[in-house]
Design a protein around this nucleic acid. Sequence first.
DNA 1: CAAAGTTCCTGCGAGC
DNA 2: TGCTCGCAGGAACTTT
Length: 299
Amino acid sequence: MPELPEVETVRRGLAPVMEGRRILAAVARRPDLRWPLPERFAERLTGRRIGRLGRRAKYLVADIEPEDGAAPEVLVMHLGMSGSFRIEPDEGVPSTPGDFVMARSKASAHDHVAFRMEGGIEVVYNDPRRFGAMLLVPRASLEEHPLFRDIGPEPLGTDFNAEGLARALAGRRTPIKAALLDQKVVAGLGNIYVCEALHRAGLSPERQAASLVTAAGKPTAATRRLVDIVRDVLEEAIAAGGSTLRDHAQVDGTLGYFQHTFRAYDREGEACLNPGCRGTIARLVQSGRSTFYCATCQR
DNA sequence: CAAAGTTCCTGCGAGC
DNA sequence: TGCTCGCAGGAACTTT
């Protein structure tokens, strides 16, 4: 599930308990997630203070205050398909590394990494499928890192605009669905929000990407509309995540899963909800992934 | 069976 | 014709 809105919601949930605080202890219960965890992962984080917790595309990026003289690093975290964070409240356990227990009585099988923060709260990362990742990267070279180098513009920033999208789509012989899923075109969209945006925009997921731009690679009305709709869809989802964030925090502190109501995704056979449309949502498979759309109003 | 993500590999077509 | 190169599409990873 974690696409841009979910990751942003997680970021907002973690920021208050991580930013400006020291990691008193870190623990990894296995050596790898999707990839091996960094060498001496826990040791390198222990005692370090977290600065800003940011987000780039679907990655969380935490500034780590360096030890004296050392080059600053960032902790990069990705939730993969099934990752989530949980905040375990301060249980009054003495905050020394030796007493760090990852709230052991509450630990479940897929709790892979945890941080005990200054103040006693524990931040626990759970990921059944282990498609997630944690990396330590020199801050100065983050943008050149292979995982970040080719990522496209943030859809909620000014870099994402009709002119840029047109340039990215021009000449591409691939369906618009696949193009929007490509993180080089725009950062942070996944299967759900691509379906939602195309549905709201009334664009067929099978339309060739290049058909949305002029022969000269300039934006059309459809390109402009799509840019606005992608922003709207993501902003609405973040707003919805913010409200579930409050609800969830009261329940069990789990961040990463919130069920927003979708208008197309996972609604096969149900009525199309676009204004004035009497069609039905259908499902098709593109590049091995489900696409939910309305053949009546998406052209 | 299908699943929200990303990388890697293969195969194809364009262009030299 | 033959060889690269880049792009597009699919498999793979793993667990529930």
